[in-house]
Structure formats: C-alpha cells, structure tokens
Simulated scan of single mutants.
Amino acid sequence: MKKTVITLADGRELFYYDSGDGEARGGYPDRRPLEPMHRAAETRYDEAQGEWIAIAAHRQNRTYKPPADQCPLDPTHGDRLTEIPAPDYEVVVFENRFPSLGGPDGGRCEVVCFTSEHEKSFADLTEAQASLVLEAWTDRTADLLARPDVRQVYMFENRGEEIGVTLAHPHGQIYAFPYLAPKMERAVTQAAAYRERTGRNLFEDLVERESAGERVVDENEHWIAFTPYAARWPYEAHLYPKRRTPDFTALDDAQRAAFPSIYLSLLRRFDGLFPAPEGGAPNRTPYIAAWHQAPKRAPGAATEIALHCEIFTVRRAPGKLKYLAGAESGMGAFASDTTPEQAALALRNAGR
C-alpha cells in the first residue's frame, strides 16, 4: 500500500491510499479559495445520563444532497473543484470540513471515500478494493489512537437516504472520540463484570456460543457473521474475527486476507433482503455498518473488547421503515419487529 499525505487549502489533512506505487497523487494542489479551518465543536457532559454530548452548531451549514454532478467527494476534473484535488483515486481519507468533534476538547472526524466511482456502493467493490479500505482503516486507527486527545476510534458507514445520508457517493466516516461513547462505555463495563464473574472473556464466549447456532449467517476460516440473540433491529448482523483482536491493527495476515470475501458477501446479503425496485435500478438496502474497537485509557479494555462490526437496516419490510418512536427514542427500550432467527434465515437465503 502507498500512502500520500497532502494539505487542503483550509489546512485540513488528506490521505491517498493506493494499491501500487505508480500514482503521484500529491502533485495536485487544492485550488479552492477556502478560509482556514475553524474547529468550533465542543463537548458537554450530561450529568443525569452520565454521557458526553458533542455540540457542533456549524454543521447546520454542511453540504446537503447536492446534484450528482456537484458531488464534493468525486475527483477534481478541470474547473470542477472538489474535496479531492487529484483527477482519480482509489481510497481517500480526509478531515471532515464540518466535524462534530475537534474543538478545544479534542477528537477528530474524518471522511473515507471507498472509491472514486460515484454510482457504486461498498458491496460493488472488488475484494482487492475492499482489502485496500481495510488497510486505510488500519492506518487511520493506528494514527488516531496515537493522539493524546483520542480515547476511541470508531469507523462507520451510513448508506441510504432513509438513514439520513446527505452525500450519495460511497463513503464512510471515522470519529476519533476524546471520550468513551455511551455504547462503548457500557461494553467495557459489561466485559469487566463478565470477567470478574466467570474468569472468561465475554466476546470470546459470545462468538463460541453463536458459532454452533441457528443464527449464523455466514462464516469462513477466520470470520463469522450472525444475528445477535437480543437484536434491536429487524435485520441486524454482527461480524467478528474468530480469533479475538482488540482493533484493526491487531489483525494478522490470514484474517486480513479472509476479510474482503465475507464482508462483501454480508453487505450483498442485506441488498438481497428485499425485492429490487422497478426500472432495473440496483437494490440498495439502507444500513449502518458500525465498527467497534477497543478504546484507550479504559481499564482492561484492550484485553476484553473485541473488534467487530454491527450492521443493521432501518427497513423492516418492503416499503416499511423501523421508526424509533416513543419507547426507543424516549427511553432506549427497543422492541424488534422480527425474531433474530427469522432474520438469520432471511439473510442466509438472500445470499443464494
């Protein structure tokens, strides 16, 4: 992998990731007349809930559903200037122009463009392309965890307007939190309590229990995907390496080689859940893919938390969405519209 670092016109960093050594991406300057980046986000602590909240009022002015020919994540062509100065790229990561984090309290937000092809989706990538994305995720994890202001590095992809996506180009994001996100803080607490109670690792036991059950969706020698026993969403799958690792940097060569095929297969299974729309357009199930990694400065986290991805869709049936109404939004009390066993069967069949 070749990594090229440049500075955008407003002072933000951009990283090109290429599978070969032949491309000279750094020779293209950012020609936009941008003002210096102003990081106005702050974090505030909710004492009643024990959670940190990011306050980022400047995000009200972020780019919202531009026409396809004005997408800021496409490569630059002629006088059509975008976030990526080069006329082509394989994988690009850059600091978000409208970050939720990164003010005086620390943290950082980045955007990951999986491909320069605007009409594609992650599920359309080749295994080689998916492998390069994995290498970019790994590199960014290492860099961001080395920052003193970062405690947790979280990769995620939002896909589909139903999720709230405002840029159609295939991309994901990275949030380098200066605090533990609420879900991660609960996982650290649960894993520590499980270790104290049983002397074993919570996530290793979870994967072992699921590996022989009816909720398995797909697996290969090094990875396994299953619907969780207590799923919150109508269709939800979790992907784990069979040998527990705390984060992307700890994956071995065999796990890396086995990753692209099962991850692409899992995303394609989500696309196969529901009938394709009329008119021949590709079926694109809206989803969130959320990568959990062990945080820093949390006692025992590096030895207890397991790298894994949680993928779920807000679509519960053709033309029907799962809305988080009074109980879910108001109290965080989820009720699923399907059983995890039914969802696992549907996802297995969607791959045929």
Rank of each mutant, 00 (worst) to 15 (best):
R200L: 02
R200N: 06
R200V: 00
N201K: 04
N201S: 11
L202W: 01
L202P: 02
L202Y: 08
F203C: 00
F203V: 00
F203N: 00
F203G: 00
D205C: 05
D205S: 04
D205L: 02
L206C: 03
L206F: 08
V207Q: 05
R209F: 06
E210P: 03
S211Y: 06
A212Q: 12
A212E: 10
A212W: 04
A212Y: 06
G213F: 10
E214N: 10
E214P: 13
V216I: 03
V216G: 00
V216C: 00
D218E: 14
D218Q: 11
E219T: 14
E219M: 11
E219D: 14
E219W: 04
E221D: 14
W223Q: 12
I224P: 04
A225Y: 09
F226E: 00
T227S: 14
T227M: 00
T227E: 02
P228W: 00
P228T: 01
P228E: 01
Y229W: 12
Y229K: 08
Y229D: 09
A230G: 09
A231S: 13
A231E: 04
A231P: 02
A231W: 01
A231D: 08
R232T: 05
R232W: 07
P234A: 11
Y235S: 06
Y235H: 15
E236M: 00
H238Q: 13
L239F: 06
L239Q: 09
L239S: 09
Y240C: 03
Y240D: 05
P241G: 03
P241Y: 01
P241L: 03
K242C: 05
K242P: 07
K242I: 04
R243W: 04
R243D: 07
R243I: 08
R243Y: 02
R244Y: 03
T245D: 04
T245H: 07
D247E: 13
F248T: 09
T249R: 13
T249A: 10
T249F: 03
A250G: 08
L251D: 01
L251P: 08
L251H: 06
D252P: 07
D253P: 09
D253E: 15
A254Y: 11
A254T: 14
Q255V: 05
Q255K: 11
Q255R: 10
R256M: 11
A257S: 13
A257R: 15
A258I: 06
A258P: 12
F259P: 02
F259C: 03
F259A: 09
P260I: 08
P260T: 12
Y263I: 15
L264G: 14
L264E: 09
S265R: 15
S265V: 07
S265T: 14
L266Y: 13
L267H: 15
L267S: 10
R268L: 11
R268H: 13
R269H: 14
F270R: 12
F270M: 10
F270W: 12
D271G: 08
D271H: 15
L273W: 07
F274H: 14
F274V: 11
A276V: 07
A276H: 08
P277V: 05
E278L: 07
